[in-house]
Computed example of a mutant assay.
Amino acid sequence: MELITGKVIIIALFILIIHSIETLAYAVRLSGARARLLASALSLFNIMVMFSRLSNMMQQPFTGSLIDNAPPENTLQFVENQFRFILGSASLGTLIGMLLLPTFVAIFSRAIIHLVAERGSIPALFKKGISFEYLRRAVGHIRKPRFSYLRGIGLKDVPKRLFLINVIVTAVYTTGVFSALYASLLVPEYKTTAIMASGLINGIGTMLLIVFIDPKISLLADAVINNQGSYVHLKRASIMMMSSRFLGTLFAQIIFIPASHYVAWFAKFIG
């Protein structure tokens, strides 16, 4: 049976889009601070988040079908290889988001200003954005990623605790659904319980993100807007968080199987 099928590639593309958008979430505050319109920036970014959530919902049935269609021989290894390939697309998507940072900040900052000019009307902004003139201007805002963008950023600027927490949270969030699905193969008698545990895992990951990560970055953005902080400092923090997120997607490969066994144990414990 073929390992990398068209279905696996489609799922990988969905995961790539999800992680690219979620990586660029760290750049939203950069654009908002640059335009001094943080609330408008977050509101506009919710449109991109909507596409991310839609992609996530669309990939889940496809991912579940990989379990249903797995061959009866060597099932665990076959599914593991497929899931590791998909998890690799999470790392690639995060990397793409990091490379798009300069371009995203430039274009998104302009989009925020136009959103205000259109009195907060997303349809009007979208209509203007797809016009030839504005698409031509957008091309002019494309920025190649350069090492000079990292100028002034050193290890001493990295808050070790926050960096580590973001690595762990990202790893848990990235592997949550896949570990739960894999656990359903480990304990087939409790497969429904194991699969449903993915919501709990992602919920915990999201809660940790909201409690420990988001407030720190938002505080830096507010300080820049109120002329009490440095834009360079905010940029350093954003790049640092993107880097830790990338490492988190790699760490997800390491904890994938252990997390699956933990979910399997949990399913049996409550079953």
Rank of each mutant, 00 (worst) to 15 (best):
R236T: 12
M240V: 11
R34G: 02
F269P: 09
N46D: 15
M242E: 10
L200S: 15
V172K: 00
H114Y: 07
F78L: 03
M241W: 02
T170Y: 00
Y26R: 12
I112N: 05
F256A: 01
I165N: 02
I254N: 00
A264G: 15
I9H: 08
S52D: 06
L181T: 04
L181Y: 09
I165Y: 13
T249L: 00
Q253K: 00
A39V: 09
I21M: 10
I18L: 05
A237C: 05
T75M: 07
E133L: 03
N166C: 00
L186Y: 13
L209T: 11
I217H: 11
V8Q: 10
S55A: 15
M241N: 07
F78D: 02
R29G: 14
I113G: 01
S52M: 07
I9W: 10
A223Y: 03
I47V: 15
K144Q: 07
M1H: 08
E189H: 06
Q60M: 11
T103S: 14
R143W: 00
G152I: 08
S244V: 05
I86S: 02
F104W: 02
Y190C: 14
Y262R: 08
A180R: 01
I21F: 09
P71C: 12
I113W: 01
T193A: 13
S65Y: 08
R236Q: 13
S43N: 14
G271R: 02
R136V: 09
K156E: 14
M196I: 12
L150Y: 14
E22V: 01
F62T: 09
R34P: 02
L54N: 01
F269D: 12
